[in-house]
Amino acid sequence: MLSAKKFKRLLIIVGVAVLLVSLNYPITVHAMHIMEGMLPPGWCIFWFAIATPFFIYGLYRMRQIVRDSNQNAKIMLALCGAFVFVLSSLKIPSVTGSSSHPTGVGLGTVLFGPGVLSVLGAIVLLFQALLLAHGGLTTLGANMVSMVIVGPFVGYAVWRLCRALRMNRAISIFLCAVFADWITYVTTSIQLAVVYPDPNNGVVGAAIKFLGIYAVTQIPLAIAEGLLTVLVYNLVISNHLWEESALR
């Protein structure tokens, strides 16, 4: 079981992160999540249809994990969800007046696999839309696809490839988090480009423009997120909150 001392350490980590969100929140910017009203109804329905099977699979995987013999499984799921919420709520202004933010999905992807992130992420995105005006309800499916479906699955593929190549575990976790972050923004750019194609260069031209808007801030943000993910992972393992043999 999780001891009182370890639980206090966990609360301190989450508390500091929440404080950072609170300090950052007064900044008024447009968030990288696709906002309410930006997608036509047909596209909203399309992205919800794509996200639904992954959400159902995530519920199945979460049920398996919760029923696992590891007594800290529920707490670690909560930690991964909080990690996604805190990092993806940090709206950092970009050079264009819009914003970029980390995604936080790398930790949960490494600990539990990509499936559960669709459920944890749906909860996070719902709370952000309702409480922080970050994202939207009609665009929830599209935001799920980019941040908590495509991101984690690509990150997991990078993680598995790195482990197959016998790369250092810390480097593998770092690359998992970085690529999961980057692919989220690539996916979002494509989602917006198909709805708002460039008059001269079509969808490809629009996607390049959307990617260019966020590249300046998102590249260093992803690197910082990768380093933070490795740090939190090491804290989890060193405090015996989770065993490496339990990794999915």
Score class of each variant (00 low, 15 high):
residue 132 L to K: 05
residue 133 A to F: 12
residue 133 A to S: 12
residue 135 G to V: 02
residue 135 G to M: 02
residue 136 G to M: 05
residue 139 T to S: 11
residue 142 A to F: 07
residue 142 A to S: 10
residue 145 V to H: 03
residue 146 S to K: 00
residue 148 V to E: 10
residue 149 I to R: 10
residue 151 G to C: 04
residue 154 V to I: 15
residue 154 V to S: 07
residue 155 G to D: 06
residue 156 Y to W: 08
residue 157 A to T: 15
residue 158 V to W: 00
residue 159 W to G: 13
residue 161 L to M: 14
residue 161 L to K: 07
residue 161 L to S: 14
residue 162 C to Y: 09
residue 162 C to T: 13
residue 162 C to A: 15
residue 163 R to V: 14
residue 165 L to R: 11
residue 168 N to H: 15
residue 169 R to L: 12
residue 169 R to I: 09
residue 169 R to V: 10
residue 171 I to R: 00
residue 178 V to N: 02
residue 178 V to H: 08
residue 178 V to Y: 11
residue 179 F to K: 01
residue 179 F to Q: 07
residue 180 A to Y: 01
residue 181 D to E: 10
residue 182 W to H: 12
residue 185 Y to K: 04
residue 188 T to H: 03
residue 188 T to A: 14
residue 188 T to S: 14
residue 193 A to P: 01
residue 194 V to D: 10
residue 195 V to N: 09
residue 196 Y to N: 13
residue 197 P to T: 04
residue 197 P to E: 09
residue 199 P to K: 04
residue 199 P to W: 04
residue 202 G to W: 04
residue 203 V to H: 08
residue 203 V to L: 01
residue 204 V to S: 10
residue 205 G to K: 12
residue 206 A to R: 07
residue 207 A to L: 02
residue 207 A to R: 01
residue 207 A to D: 08
residue 209 K to W: 12
residue 210 F to M: 07
residue 210 F to C: 01
residue 212 G to Y: 11
residue 212 G to R: 11
residue 213 I to L: 15
residue 214 Y to R: 01
residue 215 A to W: 06
residue 215 A to C: 10
residue 216 V to G: 06
residue 216 V to D: 13
residue 216 V to K: 06
residue 216 V to E: 13
